[in-house]
Simulated scan of single mutants.
Amino acid sequence: MVDNLAVVAHAADDLRIEDIGAPAPRSDEAVVDVAYGGICGSDLHYFRHGAAGASVLREPMVLGHEVAGVVAVAAADGSGPVVGTAVAVHPLTAHGDGRTPWPSDQPNLAPASTYLGSAMHLPHTQGAFARRVAMPTRMLHPLPAGIDLRTAALAEPAAVAWHALQRAGDVRGRRVVVIGAGPIGQLVAAVAQRGGAASVTVTDLQQRPREIAEARGIRSLDARAEAEIAELHADVVVESSGTVPGLSAAVSAAIRGGTVVLLGLQRGGDVPAPLATAITRELTLRGSFRFGDEFDDVIAALADGSLDVRGIISEVLPVEDAHDAFALAADPASSCKVLIDFGLEI
């Protein structure tokens, strides 16, 4: 490979496609030839604002944590998959901070964790939007037959969606509403379908996401149709828009005694919410953050086709056109999940 092109954020509106040189793996790291990477909302925040919430860019950082590829060099210590193994990447490394308690069976809640492509810590945790990346073997999950590398790039966001539905319990026979039909909302709806929900409805301001959902047999509503949303009486509502109006709509859409899962990350600080309605309806409000041990279940469901993700990948652009890919991903009226193709030849 002549160069190791990577997508590197230097500051707000300063995204560069540059050669970062050959990776230098530690003994417990394998080198992966990355095939595809999905652009996430956090990547867009670093690109547009130089920060994702409290994680502020203070040095150049390779973006990306939704990736799949093939092992090019196995780990020197003999751990992990062998050369030629197709893998999806679980980007979390769980760490405690020595003082904050957290449940040991929920690694996603470890208070000092690192995540690929995150500026939370300094030095930053470099991401995986590069043609060739060294990663700890514990992050690498071999892919079964039946799943291609392009679809496997959806494993990480699909695990986020899967975890959110699990926070609500078994959805079989229940009415599910998803507020916000971006890539994560689409995947939540797909997981609800797979889980045997009696009905699944998504809401969104944009027409294209609603059409993508409808093509998979999911009902959709314009997010401005407040009266119709209030009549949904959903057993489970997943708020995936991360907006204040979306939070209000989620409470409005829930049946008395229902469950609202807060998946979309709201802005920092105080956020207005219709808590009086939540109280008088005895709603259960549950947060959802990243995911835990669901990753392999998600990969299996993508491989056997039981998780229907048709239409969610809307565009695939080569790494040389990463600027265009990010511009597309930032426009929900024009795209859903946008992938970067790193040019791996198989």
Rank of each mutant, 00 (worst) to 15 (best):
L165T: 04
L116D: 00
P272H: 03
D331G: 00
E226F: 12
S42D: 06
I212G: 07
P81G: 05
V338E: 08
L344P: 00
R194C: 03
P81A: 11
G195W: 07
V319M: 05
R175T: 14
R131P: 05
L63V: 06
G246V: 02
A192W: 06
P136F: 04
S314A: 05
V171R: 12
A159F: 04
I20Q: 02
P144I: 04
A112Y: 10
V316S: 14
T277Q: 15
P332F: 01
L15I: 12
M139Q: 15
A300L: 03
S241V: 07
A276D: 13
S306Q: 09
A130D: 04
A74F: 08
V7Y: 09
A327V: 11
G37T: 05
R16N: 07
Q106W: 09
D14L: 13
D293P: 11
Q266G: 12
S55D: 12
S288D: 06
V56S: 04
V251Q: 08
R16H: 12
H49T: 08
A159Y: 01
A158P: 08
K337P: 01
D14K: 13
M139C: 03
R131V: 13
P81L: 10
G258I: 05
A110R: 10
H90K: 09
G343C: 05
H124K: 07
A278Y: 02
H141C: 09
L344F: 10
N108E: 15
G53A: 05
A249T: 06
S288I: 07
P23Y: 01
P101H: 02
D3K: 14
G64T: 09
P209W: 01
G185F: 01
R138A: 14
A119F: 05
G311L: 06
R172L: 10
P142K: 07
P91D: 04
T100A: 13
I147L: 15
A75N: 13
P157F: 03
S27P: 00
L5P: 03
E211Q: 15
W162K: 04
E18L: 06
S199A: 14
L344I: 00
R172V: 08
G84E: 06
V316N: 05
A234F: 10
G182R: 02
I212E: 12
R172T: 14
A276W: 12
P245T: 01
I312K: 00
V67L: 13
I312T: 12
A119I: 03
A227L: 14
V316D: 07
P209Q: 02
P144Q: 09
V319W: 05
G180M: 11
